[in-house]
């Protein structure tokens, strides 16, 4: 049996870093939302791996709750993006500088 614990964690860390980079690099709000999903999934993978390492089911339970909260977050985030882009077509994240008042 091969011990794959550390490879799983390294993969999750890599996915998280790519997601964080995309969030900082891209200005399209939709792509930024997708990068947030990427980071959430990396963390989910870490939770499942930790749960298996510790033989503890609660790691999987918390992934279930993260999934639910991610779904709610995407719904609200997309509604905000729709509201913004409808008022200002082609808006990027930088255009929301006008919100600082």
């Amino acid at each position: 049996m091969t011990n794959l614990d550390v490879p799983y964690l390294v993969l999750a860390g890599g996915l998280f870093a790519v997601g964080a980079f995309g969030l900082l690099y891209r200005r399209n709000p939709l792509v930024m939302l997708m990068c947030v999903e990427l980071m959430l999934n990396a963390v989910n993978l870490t939770f499942v791996t930790f749960g298996r390492m510790m033989n503890d089911l609660n790691g999987q339970v918390i992934v279930f709750f993260v999934l639910v909260v991610a779904a709610a977050e995407v719904v609200v985030g997309l509604a905000i993006i729709v509201a913004v882009i409808r008022r200002r077509p082609g808006a990027s994240a930088d255009d929301l500088k006008v919100l600082r008042g």
Binding site: L11, G14, L15, V18, G19, G22, C35, L38
Partner: peptide, 12 residues
Amino acid sequence: ALIALFGAGGVV
């Protein structure tokens, strides 16, 4: 892992 990393790169 390869598919996931390439997909992540594609997203960004």
